[in-house]
Structure formats: C-alpha cells, structure tokens
Amino acid sequence: MRLGIMSFAHVHADGFLQILRNLAGVEFLGFSDPDKTQGKFFADLYGVKWFDTHQALLAEKPDAVVICSENARHLEDVKLAAAAGAHILCEKPIATTLKDALAIKEAVDKAGVKFMTAFPMRFDPSIVSLKAMLGRGDLGEIYAINGINHSEIPRRHRAWFADKTLAGGGAVMDHTVHLLDLYRWLLSCEVKDLYAEVANPFTPDAQVDTAGLVTLTFENDVFTSIDCSWSRPEAVYPRWGHLKMELIGEHGAIAVDAFNQYLNYYSKKDSRQANWLGWGSDANLAMVQEFINSIREDREPAVTWKDGFEALKVALACYEASEQKQVVRF
C-alpha cells in the first residue's frame, strides 16, 4: 500500500513519518508541504521526499494519505485527497467549524473514500485495558470520570497552534477532543450538557485560550471533567504533558496514567534539566495499522468522521458556555 503525508504543519507529522517509513507492506511516498521553509527543513532532517504542492504528491496516486495540515486547512486538503481517490486519516480536531466538518463528510462520501479521525488514544494499551475492564463490569456502575490532558503550549514546536484562525482556538480546541472521544467511546453515549471555564492565564502574549476546565454530563447521567489546559511550564516541564483519568464507580475507582512508562533522564547535553523519556508502546502505530487494515478489509475504520464531528461540536460548545457563563445543553 502506498501512503503519503499531506503537510507537516502538525506536531504529530514527525511521528507518522517514522511509522510509515518503517511499516511492513507500506511504501512511503514522502510528504507534501506548500511551506517551502518547513518542507525543506523536514525533508533534510529525515531524508525523505518532499513535494512542494499537495497536487504533486497526489499525482503519485497514493492509496491513502495522512492529513497533518493546520486545523482550518483540513477541508481544502480533504477535498484534494478525496478527489484523487485517496483514503484519509485526518488529524484532530476534524475542522474548526461544523460547516467545514459537514463539507468534509460530503467530499469523502462523494468520492467513496474512507475517512478516519486521528484519535490515537483509543489504541493506547492502558485505554484498551480500561475498556475491557469496564466491559467486564469491574467497576460496576460508572458514576464519574475526571480527566486531564495537560501540556505545555505547543507553539515552540509549531507556531500556528496558538493562531486562532488556523487552529480555531487554543487549549480547548487542541485537547478537549482527545478525552471527550475516549469518554464517548467508553460510555457509548453522547454529551447531554456542559459547562466550561476558559481563559488565557499562562501565555498572555498568545491570542488564544491556554486554560480550560470543562464539566460534561452524558446522556446516561455520568458526569465528567476535562482539564485541557496548556498549563505545564513551557520548556521546563520534563515532558510535553500527560493524559490521565480517574474513573469512579460502584466498586471503587480506576486511575489511568497513559504515559506513565518513562525513564527519569538527566543529561548535560539537553536543554531541560530533567526529562521523562517514554518507553511505552506507540498508540499512533496501532492507529495507523487500524487505518490500513480498514482499507485492506474494505470496512469502516474504528474511528469515524462522526467521532471527529461530535468532538468538534463539544469543543465549540465549551467556548459558548464560557462566553455565556451558562450551561450549554445539546
């Protein structure tokens, strides 16, 4: 199977590149990026082929592409890929507006290509185990979930994450969707209502929100919280951040720290005083594998357009709740 990456704008593009060029049965075609500085930089860094237009990559007739462009550019890139008949794995959030997200669906349906929203955490071994435990009824009735997806502000790696037009927002847009998707998956139902406190306390010179505390209630009355804040000190914290949750239920509690497999690592050659060096398994790899399998087996991927759409709907509602200082009901 022949795959390429459209745009290197997203911080996850580096990881996808490493996976695709090492995956058995995959011919990695390279990546396209109309940003010449960015394109040349990463082509040199990784020694892979760079196409300076998306059209040039798509002319190679890839079976599938991974779209790693800025959130606001997902729709235009989906349209190009779908028209070229390439199946699509698209970075999250799916888009910055519901209108764009709906247009994405129209484009992929019309072209008859598969579309998967990139929610890798569903494939993380800790989350897979959690899903199995809940399925066995280990926790009994689930009452509540308190989740954290903290990080530093990602602008050090790619500036557009803190650009409201290109990203559609800040921490809420970037981080709410991961946990929200997990909650929807674990609980098998949708959000009923939510309230959010949203602000920018951490990086006053950024034009976007850097902190968010969201309280969401699902249709089955399970109440949850998402802390999506970019609250870890930039370039000082030992790692980008973390994803944790604690589930409370009839039989006790289950705590999950998905990135808890790391070494404490100190080097005089590094910029940080301390580093957490992860050695756990790569959820992105399992996600890419599922994407490829869904194409080979000609079935819906495990994560769909609807999953991306519902997550975006909730992220946008967080901003609404915060502006109105009121509960938003769906």
Partner: peptide, 15 residues
C-alpha cells in the same frame, strides 16, 4: 463523589 468547578474574580479557575 463530586466535581466542583470554580471561576475566580481574578480570572483563575479551579477544579
């Protein structure tokens, strides 16, 4: 079990 979200006058928030 409860989750309480607070919004402060100084712009801070708490969970």
């Amino acid at each position: 079990y409860a989750l309480i979200s607070l919004g402060f006058e100084n712009g801070a928030m708490a969970l």
